[in-house]
Write a protein that binds this DNA or RNA. Structure first.
Lengths: 138, 138
DNA sequence: CTATTATTGCAAATAATTCGCAATTGTCAA
DNA sequence: TTGACAATTGCGAATTATTTGCAATAATAG
């Protein structure tokens, strides 16, 4: 597990357990759903319970080590936050691959939305759907 | 119920029932969650079952009369599609109000994402969070 | 190494969603 | 308008998803 994440856990009085480490590991390269995370972790050598996966994710979200992303396809996926700067995603609706997208000027969107709605905008989420390069050529 | 929606239902061999009419009515001005729709419909004079609300929504989504929107706050909301052109939303995280937002150039976002990811982009969803004008001054 | 206490696994509880089926009710054609 | 037919509903039961209580286990500070 990433040193910074360890630090945040410790400072909160939380322990570094193999289960927590594995959950973070499972989503280290790609956002995954609860079920997928459970599958992945279960394939390793350490034993884990679904309830523990839920508990780990709930904790990580609270500590902002992880965030949920939703593509409107019915399931939430969980993504590591630490190293990333704010970004968006593209989901391949054929193979399920998720690719990060960094747009030129995300803040501009918020400014425009703020002007049009008269809200004080505090954040946004933007997800793209499409077909990835591999699937396009398959 | 809107004439166009009636037509689409009929053409598919589906019937216009009070339950379906009420479900559409419940979301006619604002996107609502399943539970909220059920509450709203239940307050009227016609009797409805939660299962029927689920069934109506599933059907409407299949017929593209309605779409699910998700703000990442854990619940899906359902929104009428017919009259709307493609647009985005702002959710007031204090009072829950949802306001439509039409941005200058949504397609530009897709073009940029397409270029960066090498996906063939087929759609996107963009939701803003913030505090609405009323709540700001309350 | 030990004591302390957070965390886990398990099983049971709760919540969310779906399904089977008999009763009801739109709809079409006469 | 009426009757027949098939779609739809309500209800309860079945799934599925998520949460919780608790005794056993294990991480960590000293």
């Amino acid at each position: 597990m990433d040193e910074n994440n360890k630090k945040i856990l410790k400072e909160g009085g939380y322990r570094i357990t193999p289960q927590r480490t594995q959950v973070l590991c499972a989503i280290s390269t790609n956002p995954q759903s609860v079920e997928e995370i459970y599958e992945t972790v279960s394939q390793g050598t350490i034993k884990t319970d679904l309830a523990s996966v839920y508990r780990a994710l709930t904790l990580f979200v609270k500590l902002k080590l992880v965030q949920a992303v939703n593509f409107g396809d019915g399931k939430d996926r969980y993504e590591i936050l630490n190293t990333h700067k704010h970004h968006h995603h593209a989901l391949c609706t054929r193979c399920g691959k998720i690719t990060d997208v960094e747009l030129q000027d995300g803040k501009k969107l918020e400014r425009e939305a703020s002007k049009k709605t008269n809200y004080r905008i505090t954040g946004h989420s933007l997800e793209f759907f499409g077909i990835c390069h591999n699937c396009c050529n398959a």
